[in-house]
Simulated scan of single mutants.
Amino acid sequence: MAGGISIHVVDVTRGLPAAGMVVEIFKVGGDKIAAGVLSHQGVLDHSVVRGENVEPGNYEVVFHIGEFYHQLDYALSEEFPFLDVRFALALVTLSNIIIFHLNHLGVFRCFAVDS
């Protein structure tokens, strides 16, 4: 079985998982392979985690940060509606865990772990 793409997001503004944030995953130059709302643990619960529709190639993850922080009553610039991150997967036999630390100012850190 192929490994998957597991998205984990922490809202460092509040020190909590980014529960309720909308996230989409696309194959670059192709179709959307996953979309959903992050769970109370800040994790995207989707079949892509188990490897469905995951193959070697380039991917793009779109985090709807503006909408998320607007719902929490944080003021954001109109120029910051989402965060778009691209990455490549060469080995899909591993689980690819991508961890993001975000805040309402647009500062973020990204960690990728193969397991």
Results as ranks from 00 to 15, higher is better:
2 A>C: 02
3 G>Y: 06
5 I>P: 00
5 I>H: 05
6 S>P: 01
8 H>I: 14
11 D>Q: 06
11 D>T: 08
11 D>G: 02
14 R>T: 12
15 G>Q: 10
15 G>H: 09
16 L>Y: 07
20 G>H: 02
20 G>Y: 04
22 V>T: 12
24 E>L: 09
27 K>I: 05
28 V>I: 14
32 K>L: 04
32 K>E: 04
33 I>H: 10
33 I>R: 11
35 A>E: 15
35 A>F: 09
36 G>T: 00
37 V>F: 09
38 L>V: 09
40 H>G: 08
40 H>L: 11
41 Q>L: 14
41 Q>I: 02
42 G>T: 06
43 V>L: 03
46 H>C: 07
46 H>V: 02
48 V>N: 07
48 V>Y: 02
49 V>A: 14
50 R>A: 14
51 G>S: 04
51 G>E: 06
54 V>E: 01
54 V>Y: 00
55 E>P: 00
56 P>T: 03
58 N>C: 04
59 Y>C: 02
61 V>L: 02
62 V>A: 05
64 H>F: 13
66 G>M: 07
66 G>Q: 07
70 H>K: 13
71 Q>N: 13
71 Q>V: 02
74 Y>D: 08
76 L>H: 12
80 F>K: 15
82 F>I: 05
83 L>A: 07
84 D>W: 10
87 F>H: 04
88 A>D: 06
88 A>K: 12
91 L>A: 07
93 T>W: 10
94 L>K: 15
97 I>H: 10
99 I>A: 05
102 L>I: 15
102 L>V: 15
103 N>M: 09
103 N>S: 10
103 N>A: 05
106 G>K: 11
107 V>F: 12
108 F>R: 13
111 F>T: 12
112 A>I: 11
113 V>K: 15
115 S>Y: 10
